[in-house]
Simulated assay, not measured.
Amino acid sequence: METLLIYKDDLSNKFWKINVTGNSFTVTYGKVSTVGAVKTKEFESEEICQKEANKLIQSKLKKGYVVAGSSEHVVKESAITEAFFWKLLETAKKKGEDPDEQLEWLVNHLSRRSVKDIVMFDYIFNQYYYKSYTSNLWAAAYIVMGGCSDDSFDYFRAWLLYLGKGTYETIIQDPEKIIPHLKILEEEGDVPEFEDLLYVASMAYEEKTGFDDEHYYNLYEQLSDDKYVQPKMEFDWDEDDEEGLSNKFPVLWERYGENPLG
């Protein structure tokens, strides 16, 4: 349930919005046409949550707020677009000599933006991240690293996203195009994984608010309406079938089949 109220007089033009989901609600408030501030609260039951939400709504109505006819031009959802998301990743690469320093800059930058911007950054990241959950890509990661667990594939996909949109999309279509991007890792004896990139948003949120990742993920669920459920993977390859893997990706197999990274 979502309720959007506005209040306007000679001195004020502001909004107040509450979104109730299960046993918690999120309140967004501020000047009209801004993203506003965000607060969230959790209760012991859905019934208690709804009751408290109704009390807040009635309190606002008594103070002169009225129900908004439309949310258009009332609440600015976020300044983070897909183009800006990819630009942030590219900028981060210039802000440090190694991924750890770059990640630190990215977390710090996001922590200075609005909570909605943090959530939108994470939402866009996740939409691309979900698309990379493919059998082909997992087979490629398995060959490159000489094995690839569920967790390892998660970290591999995060690393892939960090390469940038064009490279990400190219490798999704043809995993063997990944080879040029592995040369530095070969020299350093490293593997193509970037686990901490998965937690950038929750780290930025904690730095901004002091609340932990559990608090953030509850908020993310309410603000993003991200309903994704990871599907069961249908593999078209067998980890014990070396001939099948070599036939599937001959170039990758020739380079890493007997000499995987890591």
Results as ranks from 00 to 15, higher is better:
K63G: 00
V74D: 07
I18H: 05
T81E: 09
E169D: 12
Q50V: 14
Y7A: 04
G36F: 13
T28A: 11
D240Y: 11
K8S: 15
M203I: 02
V144T: 14
E186R: 11
D154I: 04
I118R: 00
S33Q: 15
S59E: 12
K227P: 02
L137Y: 07
K62L: 10
W253F: 12
L103Q: 13
N108T: 04
L11R: 15
L56W: 05
K14N: 12
R157K: 14
E258G: 12
N136S: 13
D174P: 13
T91R: 03
D9W: 08
V251C: 11
S111D: 02
L197I: 10
I57F: 14
S224E: 04
E239V: 12
P99D: 04
E186H: 01
G166I: 04
K62D: 08
W86R: 01
Y142R: 05
G147I: 01
P99W: 03
Y220S: 01
L197H: 05
K131E: 04
E193G: 12
Y205A: 01
V119H: 00
E206I: 05
S224L: 04
K116M: 05
S135L: 09
G257T: 04
P250H: 08
Q102I: 05
L185T: 01
V119A: 07
K232M: 10
Y205W: 02
I184T: 07
D9R: 09
Y142L: 05
L198T: 04
E239P: 15
V27R: 02
Q230V: 12
